[in-house]
Design a protein around this nucleic acid. Structure first.
Lengths: 234, 234
DNA sequence: GTTTAATGGGTCAGTATCAGTCCATTGAAG
DNA sequence: CTTCAATGGACTGATACTGACCCATTAAAC
């Protein structure tokens, strides 16, 4: 029962509805799923999709508004928009134990390498192929301050074209966990350049329909940032 | 935003606290993490670990009791025990869409193949090695009615020795989703025998510290049941 | 026997969350 | 300039969940 019990008897809810809602919205913003300037779905629709009451959603939106992440406009054709300039990092993160870092890295490798392989094994629609190419291009032309978001968006796109929504959510979750840690370490142009080369190889392998190549390229890419994280956080 | 939005704006809570608690406990029972006859943690402790009030936990336990999954005894050295003979399947499952089946299968392959690889890449403690061997043996000597539980327990053990609690939880979750579907298809001795051979290969590769072999053996194993599921549910 | 510690059984007031309803604002369309 | 539909803003009563109690029961330990 021991270790499996630890995993199964973990908390059923990680916080109250308000906190979880804020977390989700931050996920969408920080991972670049809805970019600066764009509109979120209307409150009524968003509340329904998040499975939360509109009151709770609005509390979450207010919190994000006060923190400067979103701005709301009333009236028809109004809505809640992502701020053009996002606030910088969400404050100092609690020192992550080595254990929790390894936990997240292990999960990430499984999910993202699996996603790359699965994506390459599928026959992709033209839409999917364009999506991948667009995210790759965005990543290559990203400003330094934008890079993490564009990078996340590309990785998420690879999970998306897998066709598995569960896999996509899981990738988004683990990336949020790791991004918090990554915010604590410097972003070197040298590393970005290297990342972009690897990204190109990964996307090419996926588009070519070469699962083994996609997996190994992704694994290599992930090992790079994993080493970086281990180095800076120890 | 499209597909990524679908994944990110999914419901924050899949049900009320009561339902989620029942689900978790069923997970522990159905996956064989706490076997028939054994005791669950005391209500106060379990409620704390599940992050739920004791009232809610007790409601969940009562529901499971009425359904015949557990029995409670009062007094010191009492507790809530898993029934020696568990009720059969949880009623007719809603017809799973092909999409949701593929969704779960894709996620499972990523998680479990990744887990096998990660497990083989670690230096395992003696305890871990024994754990794996014990679960494998249990699986090989399982009765037909016990097989699914013992099988799940083994797969979970492989995730456990990875050392990543998140990965373990994720494997448990996706297995629960698939077990519901597997309950709808017959369990042939012929298949069991084949499964056990594959299990032996997987565990051997993990114990030998051969990640590539562990991954490929696990992939092959999973592909087998995936084909079975696709065949019966279409 | 008596004691005692650990357990399940149950109650209650406070808080969080929800579903439903109506209001206020906006800008496009007529 | 009026109308209208879609949006954010705000309130209310009902319900779910919690945290903190205290009680009842049991079997080992003394």
């Amino acid at each position: 029962m021991d270790t499996a019990g630890d995993a199964l008897f973990r908390p059923v809810r990680t916080g109250n509805a308000f906190e979880e809602t804020v977390e989700r919205l931050l996920q969408a913003i920080r991972l670049g799923v809805v970019p600066p300037g764009e509109r979120l779905p209307a409150e009524r629709e968003l509340a329904a999709r998040l499975g939360v009451s509109r009151v709770t959603l609005r509390e979450a939106l207010h919190a994000l508004q006060e923190a400067g992440f979103v701005e709301s406009r009333r009236g028809r054709y109004g809505g809640t928009f992502i701020s053009a300039s996002l606030p910088v990092g969400g404050g100092p993160v609690p020192p992550p134990s080595v254990g929790s870092l390894e936990d997240a890295l292990t999960l990430r490798t499984a999910l993202e390498a699996g996603a790359a392989e699965a994506a390459a094994a599928r026959v992709l629609s033209g839409y999917d192929r364009d999506h991948l190419r667009a995210r790759l291009a965005e990543c290559e032309s990203a400003e330094l301050t934008d890079y993490r978001r564009k990078d996340s968006r590309l990785h998420l796109a690879i999970a998306e074209v897998t066709g598995s929504a569960s896999l996509t959510s899981a990738v988004a979750d683990v990336r949020m966990r790791l991004n918090e840690l990554l915010d604590g370490i410097p972003l070197l142009p040298r590393n970005i350049e290297h990342s972009n080369q690897q990204h190109a190889v990964i996307v090419a392998a996926v588009l070519d329909g070469d699962p083994a190549a996609a997996r190994s390229a992704m694994t290599e890419h992930l090992d790079g940032t994993a080493a970086l994280l281990r180095g800076f956080l120890s």
